[in-house]
């Protein structure tokens, strides 16, 4: 029982700042981290909108343009221009998850951090995965009708139907739990390293936070890429 073991040596596992709203529990630290990440993303976006220079783009604009072009290339290369709806979704997912993951790098406390990565809370990743699931399912049904969409589950043979159903259900969960697991373990590592003597702890912490930033990029990229791929599977003709 790993959580129990970690709890025994004083590392808080999945402890959140609980707030009761109308009798429901809300993780206040996850929410404010999410809000800060969301505000940063929106501020970065609006800054580009207000300074949208055409001739010589600035760094921030280039950052957006690179992401937009990469996602557009991916989507239009595999889906065709009809699936333009997947583009803003994948872009938002990548940037939002990236900023949310990097929030953890800001030093905000020792063993318990004030600014945890929102993705270290399943509420954040389930929320993203649900939006993605609903988007691509809706796109698939719109493209082929409800019957056509469900008929895809019986391909290539009706015997495969249970496996296909499980796969469909597993998609959003794996999407959410992959991101959660990576960021949760990252936060756990930082909490563990914080137990080292103060004159030593900065060395592995600095190294780990750099690696954590790398993981943050990779996971944001994977989440956005898988979103595009699931979208593709949902709207593609002929199934597998």
């Amino acid at each position: 029982m790993v959580p129990g073991l970690l709890g025994a040596i004083g590392v808080p596992v999945a402890q959140f700042v609980d707030v009761k709203v109308f009798g429901y529990t809300i993780h206040a630290d996850t929410v404010w981290s999410t809000l800060i990440a969301g505000l940063i993303v929106i501020a970065m976006g609006l800054a580009v909108r207000w300074s949208a220079t055409k001739e010589v783009p600035g760094r921030l604009q280039l950052f957006w343009e690179v992401i937009v072009e990469a996602v557009q290339g991916q989507v239009e290369g595999t889906l065709g221009p009809k699936s333009a709806a997947a583009v803003p979704l994948a872009i938002t997912l990548f940037v939002f998850i990236l900023v949310a993951n990097w929030i953890e790098v800001i030093p905000s406390g020792a063993v318990t951090v004030a600014l945890p990565a929102p993705a270290a809370d399943v509420n954040f990743t389930y929320a993203l995965a649900l939006v993605v699931f609903m988007t691509y399912t809706a796109a698939g049904i719109r493209r082929r009708g409800l019957g056509g969409y469900l008929a895809r589950l019986t391909k290539p043979h009706w015997i495969m139907t249970p496996i296909n159903v499980i796969e469909e259900i597993a998609k959003p969960f794996t999407l959410a739990l992959r991101l959660f697991g990576n960021l949760f373990s990252g936060g756990l590592m930082i909490a563990l390293l914080a137990l080292l003597p103060f004159w030593l702890t900065w060395v592995p912490t600095a190294a780990w936070k750099l690696f954590d930033m790398f993981i943050g990029v990779i996971q944001a990229f994977i989440f956005a890429l898988l979103t595009v791929l699931y979208y593709e599977v949902a709207v593609s003709e002929g199934g597998h």
Binding site: Y24, H27, T30, V31, T34, N123, F124, Y126, L128, L130
Partner: peptide, 12 residues
């Protein structure tokens, strides 16, 4: 998930 889920969906 708990009620935080709703807030996260709205935020996203």
């Amino acid at each position: 998930p708990n009620a935080t889920f709703i807030a996260e969906i709205v935020a996203f």
